[in-house]
Amino acid sequence: MRRLLLALPFALLPLTVAHAAEEHDHDHEHGSLSAHEHGVARLNAALDGQTLELELESPAMNLVGFEHAATTDADKAKVAAARAQLEKPLALFNLPKAAGCVVATQELESPLFGDKPDADDDHDAKDEHHHDHSEIHAHYQFTCSAPGALKTLDLANIFNTFPATQKIQVQLISPSGQQGVEVTAKAAALKF
């Protein structure tokens, strides 16, 4: 139930941002935040009491350098390396030790990891390039003993670990309110 409550505001946010994106991006064939755009990742973050949820969605191109099924040993090694990095969210998101955050749950999903595509991706089935657009989804839930110590969310390690990621569109819900921010490697931190 809690996850549903946290997900609901995120379901509504893209609608308002999508309209603005269409105005800025009307020449691009996809005008919403759900568009698959190389170099661009999305992060939903919610802090509710002692629970911090982070949901990262990225084209596989940003994280492994390709989107096709890994068949060569080199490609398989890249997928394994990216997965290993994603399995260390405390380091990846550089959460302050003072916040006392521990990983409660984590889920990694991608066709590259052997997962089947989501059923809600069926609307793209007519697109002949659909099989070339692999996404990687990572969902983390942390329990933080001192959530007040979470003053900023520093995403620099994501840019350093996955240099093909050029920007991250962040939707953040925290006790101080709700914000939508686009961060880059040069300005990788945002305030809670």
Rank of each mutant, 00 (worst) to 15 (best):
L54W: 02
A45H: 11
L13S: 11
E135S: 13
A80Y: 02
K167D: 00
S134F: 05
E55K: 06
H133R: 13
A99K: 07
Q85H: 14
S110A: 10
P117R: 12
L112Y: 02
L63Y: 02
K116L: 02
E37D: 08
G180L: 13
L90V: 08
F192R: 00
E109T: 10
P111I: 04
S58I: 02
M61Y: 04
K76S: 05
Y140T: 07
L47I: 13
S134V: 04
C144Q: 00
Q106H: 14
C101F: 09
S134K: 05
L153S: 10
E57G: 02
D154W: 08
G177V: 11
S32M: 03
E107Q: 14
D121P: 01
A18N: 09
G65L: 06
D120F: 03
Q141E: 14
F113V: 04
E67G: 15
N157M: 12
D48N: 01
F93T: 07
A70H: 06
A80G: 02
H137K: 03
K116D: 00
A84C: 00
D124T: 01
C101R: 11
G49I: 06
K116I: 02
P147D: 04
K186D: 00
E55C: 04
P117H: 03
R42T: 04
S34P: 00
P9W: 14
D121Y: 10
S110M: 10
F192G: 09
L112P: 06
E55Q: 03
A74P: 05
A46C: 07
D127T: 10
M61L: 03
A45E: 12
A45V: 11
D118R: 03
K88T: 13
S174A: 15
D75W: 04
S32E: 00
D124Q: 11
H131E: 14
T165F: 07
T51H: 08
I136R: 12
H36Y: 06
